[in-house]
Amino acid sequence: MEFSVERAFDLLDQSIQLIQNEERVTYLDGLALALKKFNAGVELTEPSLQEMAKMLEETEVTNEQIRKVIQLAIIKGMKGSTQQQHMITPDSIALFIGYFLQKFLKNKEEFRVFDPASGTGNLLTAVINQVEANGIGYGSEIDPTLIQIAVESANLQEQQIEFFHQDSLTPLLLEPVDFVIADLPVGYYPDDTQSLQYQLRAEEGHSYAHHLFIEQSIKYTKEGGYLLFLIPNFLFTSDQSEKLQKYLREHTHIVSLMQLPLTLFTSEKFAKSLFILQKKGQDTKPPKQALMAQLPSFKDVQATDNMLKKIDKWFKNENLE
């Protein structure tokens, strides 16, 4: 019997709905409870969870397949959410981030990666799953439901990930990492007292959370380490952007800025780009030429293939492989 992502999701969905009705909780809370039951190895009372456990035992299943089952449930739970932080990063983007991370790793056998806006852990686990080296992950998230899903999802995938349940812009018990990846939360940061700790704080009023997340991420990256951010396309045209650009020139080398296909977003105002930085260190130097591109629709296989060839050529020219 082959493992079916769709069938496994149907079973998980049935279980979540049962738990929802019994516990009177939201769908996402029901997902967290279903995964917790599953991981605890206690006797499963829901027939759908029993069948799902049997499926996992009797078929060859990969971490990536498990992630996709959970992802389908997360997408269902987030449907109609008005909060941008309750949106899931598309798999096509996660694949692209993983592709770059693999390139920067060269022949390293192990790496440490941190997502300061980890949410349900979907981006973090998607990237770790596709990189050949052994990934040790760290994630930070303030939302209790999202972090509970992230913990249970990572456990079910047997991923080595440590999560911090806290405001990501407060100090973290974390040694600097090789990589930071983040789909940056966009908006204002409400804690004006905490923002005083940041160089990128606003002179008056609330500071931009996305600016502070960039500064915090650079702080927790090793010298020579890389940061791969999904940024709003307006990042460098909004007010306070001059201060941000000055800060980035001081602390990092700009490696790449690639605009993502507009087809990935519900509206142009939510469109994003992949922004790659390297933290400056004694042995680092800026690229001869930063990689700038407008990415084609990922559905256009030929155009995407041509773009990957151009990126491969850029890596060779920069001696980064």
Results as ranks from 00 to 15, higher is better:
L169I: 03
F111M: 09
L264R: 02
D143A: 15
A290P: 05
N317G: 12
E215A: 01
E43Y: 13
L31N: 03
S4E: 11
Y208R: 06
K313Q: 13
N122H: 13
Q130L: 06
Q245P: 15
Q14C: 01
L31S: 12
L12V: 08
D305N: 11
M292Q: 15
N122D: 12
L212A: 10
K299N: 12
V25H: 01
K79W: 08
E57F: 14
L244K: 03
S140R: 05
Q17G: 11
Y188V: 10
V61N: 01
S273G: 11
L295M: 08
F179G: 11
G135T: 15
D191P: 00
Q85P: 03
Y138K: 02
M1D: 07
K37G: 10
K103G: 12
F3G: 10
R249G: 06
T62I: 13
N21M: 14
A73V: 07
L35G: 02
T266W: 13
G119H: 02
Q245S: 12
G281S: 14
P176Q: 04
Y226G: 01
Q84A: 10
A8H: 10
G224H: 02
G30D: 08
Q157I: 04
F38H: 00
N107D: 14
I254W: 06
H211I: 14
F179T: 11
Y189P: 07
F270K: 13
Y138C: 02
F100Q: 15
L277E: 00
V177A: 00
N317V: 11
Q166G: 08
E57R: 10
I311K: 02
E60K: 12
Q17C: 13
M52Y: 14
T170I: 13
Q199S: 11
L95H: 13
I74L: 00
Y99S: 03
G139Y: 00
I218V: 02
F179N: 05
Q259S: 10
K316R: 13
L320R: 02
R249A: 15
K103P: 04
K272A: 11
V25G: 04
E175K: 01
Q289I: 07
D283H: 04
H253K: 05
L212H: 03
G77M: 03
K68F: 01
A126Q: 07
L228V: 11
S153M: 02
S256I: 11
G281L: 06
Q84I: 15
F236W: 09
L212G: 08
I231M: 01
G41F: 00
S15F: 00
F265V: 12
I218D: 03
K310W: 09
G98V: 01
L33R: 09
A126H: 06
T266N: 12
E321V: 09
V113R: 07
V177E: 02
E64N: 06
G98R: 04
D283A: 13
V25Q: 06
T193F: 13
F229A: 08
R7P: 11
S267G: 09
A293R: 01
L257W: 07
D178P: 11
L31W: 04
A40H: 09
T26N: 07
I70H: 08
E152N: 13
V42K: 06
M258R: 09
L33G: 02
G205C: 00
E204R: 15
P176M: 05
I70F: 02
M52H: 05
